[in-house]
Amino acid sequence: MKRLLTTLRHTYIGKKAQILGWGLGLALYGLLIVPMYDTFVAQGEQFQQMISSYPPEFLAFFGATVNSMLTPAGFLGMYAFSMLPIIIGIFSVIAGSALILDDEERGRLDLIIAHPIGRSSFFFGRTLGILATTLTIHILGWLGFSMLLGGSSLAVSWGQMAVPFLSLLVQTLFYIALSLMLSMLMPSRNLAAVVSGAIMVTSYFVSSLASINDSMGALAKLMPYHYFQTVLSFQELNLGWVAALLGISAIMIVIGWLRFIRRDIRLRGEGSWRLSFLSKRRKTI
């Protein structure tokens, strides 16, 4: 346990730049978007006219309607939370695929893993470290979105604001787990990041397009973004969806762990974009 905690601590400390960059960036976005609602409401008629001129498909893509845009949930859903899973998703894909492979592909893991840590403690220490990092980023984002709520006509409490952030956190964890698992199964970090990113973007577009085209509804149900919830109350939150996404994430992490404890640790330059069965791997013998 001590070995796991040591790795966790070092992982968390090593991510301080990401915590500050992504967390403060998210918070700043919240500090800008929340006061915008008052302007939005004050000029409600003009906005409503402008929004009415938009094609309904455009609004539906972002999960909004003309009437919902002036409600707190509709406003936040459209202007804040519709894009956040993609923005934070970039962090997830990079962080998950790099969690272990960054050190391995740069040639550092060989020496680190020769220390008496144990592969499982190392893997879970790193995984918990990135989970703690992600949680901190989301807390900073939530604080940024909540700090100006008191002076805003949004009429949303700090607790209500936490609900979409909880759903966002689950989405982030899902993509971290996905890219971590793929990084253990694929020949290089880049490939794992590209595939994870492609799944994330596809998920976003398929789920959004399903709001316009009903025939895509069945396909959308297979996409993680479909289960992202921007509701503002815990009562409305579908906990089954939250649990399912967390469960799948846990399974992907376990698959990554099983692969990591069984495989050889590579030296620098041994990973590649190419699939291993198509390429001659460079090995230091």
């Binding site: 740069r106 040639g107 060989d110 020496l111 020769a114 220390h115 030296l267 620098r268 230091t284």
Partner: peptide
């Protein structure tokens, strides 16, 4: 882990 605790390792390529 027991081996690694008792061993000092210097890799050929270090980063």
């Amino acid at each position: 882990v027991s081996i690694q605790a008792l061993t000092g390792y210097l890799p050929g390529e270090m980063q």
